[in-house]
Each structure stands twice: as C-alpha cells, then as structure tokens.
Amino acid sequence: MDYALQQLLNALAFGAEYSLVALGLAVVFSIMGLVNFAHGEIIGVSAYSVFLAAALGLTSPIVAVLLAIAAAALAAIAFERVAFRPVRYAPTTTGLLTAFGVSIVVQNLFMLLISPKPQSVSILNGLNQMWFFGPFAVSSLQVMELIVSGLTILALVLFLNRSTLGLAIRAASRDFATVRLMGIRANRVIATAFAVSGALAGIAAVFIMARRGSVSPDLGFSLVLKAFVACVIGGFGSLPGAAVGGMLLGFIEVGLLVVLPQEYGGFKDALTYVIIVALLVYRPEGLLGQRVELGDKEI
C-alpha cells in the first residue's frame, strides 16, 4: 500500500514537471509555430543564475526561487529578441533549426564560461526533505511539485481566459494577422508568450536544482526532449494536450521503473520512447491534437 502510494506520488510529481515544461513549449509553438529546442537552455540560464547568485553570497531560498523564475522569463524574452525574431515568418524547419542552434550555443557557453563539470548548488536543498504523515514518509519536494504545478496551471488557465493579453495569445494561435488588426502589438503578444513559457521553465528549474543539488551545461536538455515527446503525444500545439502528455509520460516512466527488473533499469528511457512512438502509430496527430496543425497561419 505504502509502496503503491509512493509510486503514484512519483508518477504525479514527474508528470507535473513534464507538464510544466511541455506547456512552456506549447504556448510558444501555438502562436509562432516555433519548435523551441532552446527551452532547456532557458532552464539552464535560470539554474546558472541561481548558482552565480549563491556564489556571490545569496542565501535566501525565497529570493533564489524568484530569481530563478525571473531569470528564465528574461532569458526567454532575450532569446526571442536576438535569435527568433529574424526567423519569425520563416518556415517551421528554419525556426526549429535556429532554436537548435541557440541551444548548442548556450550549452557550450556554459561550458566555456563556467565549467563543463557539474557545479554544486545547495541553496534550494531545503525544499527536499522527508515529511512524515503517521506511518507515511513522503518527499516534500514531490508534494510541492504537485501542488505548485497544479496552481501554476490554474494560473495559466486564468491568465489565458481572463486577461486581454491572454485572450490575444489564444487568438494568435489561430490567426495572428487578425490579432494585429485589433491594434494589439504582435511583439508584445509574442514577448508575453515567451515570458510565460520562460516562467514555467523557471519553476521547473527550481525543482531540478532542489532535487539534484547541482547545475550542469546539459541540465535542461534531456528534460526538454522528454517534454517535446509529451507535446507530440498530446498533440503538438495543444495546451491541454501538453499537460496530459506530460502526465502520461510521468506515469509511463514510473510504471516502467516498477515493472522493469533492476538490471534492465537502464532501458527505462529507451522503452519510454518506444511506447510513445508506438502510440503515435495509432494516433499520428496525438491524443488531443487536431488533423490541422495549429501552427499553420495565414496572412
């Protein structure tokens, strides 16, 4: 019983983290058709900002959390400004390759400017404790991941449904030109979408640092690859699809960990991908995707 509950919590916590990252990808893709491979490096910038701040004497975990989120949002906006704006109206493949290039540049800059080796960051370790509920011991980090992700998704839904900019983001996912005809500045809509996407990545960065206690140049890369897979399985560009796909991925992974014998544990990632790809054979458009891609916009 205890074991089953523990694994359920594991799956939910993993899934929540994937959902956050996948949502960040989907927000940007839905309005710009940009497949943002550099999303992992937004997580990276966020983590290295905390690392540097700690090295310079920051001790407050709360400030560190806020810094992580702010740095990620700013990094996302900066990436858009510098690298993605020139290819805004270019074909999807061009944007995708640009983002891939940005990802390589930033990862290597971490190596060049800081170090290729993982660096220890302990400022957020306090988030990762054991909580005891009677006979149950649970990881505080997992509980927080679950609650914070839930609240974040709720906030995102409210933002997209209530605020004018949120409405504009939803409208722009179908028809950017007409959003501009409303007098809403395209640059502002896009910057907001990137900021939102970055903030989601920043929250994920906090969890990653609290769990690992270290930062490394490829910190966000493999997580983002998984989030991409979550997007594909949910239906690329669909926000509910991203959230559902992320959760599903969490459950598949933890399910495999439970089922696989110890000596085959190394095959977990490979099998996860195999399962997802197999699902795509039956639903090429993803679980919640539409046949028509959201990304295709007209002038």
Binding site: R170, A171, R174, A177, L181
Partner: peptide, 11 residues
Amino acid sequence: TPEGRRIFANL
C-alpha cells in the same frame, strides 16, 4: 473587417 470575417473561432 477582413475578408472572410476572420472571427476568433476558439474564443
């Protein structure tokens, strides 16, 4: 008001 109306169908 553009040709083909272009209302935001998902809103």
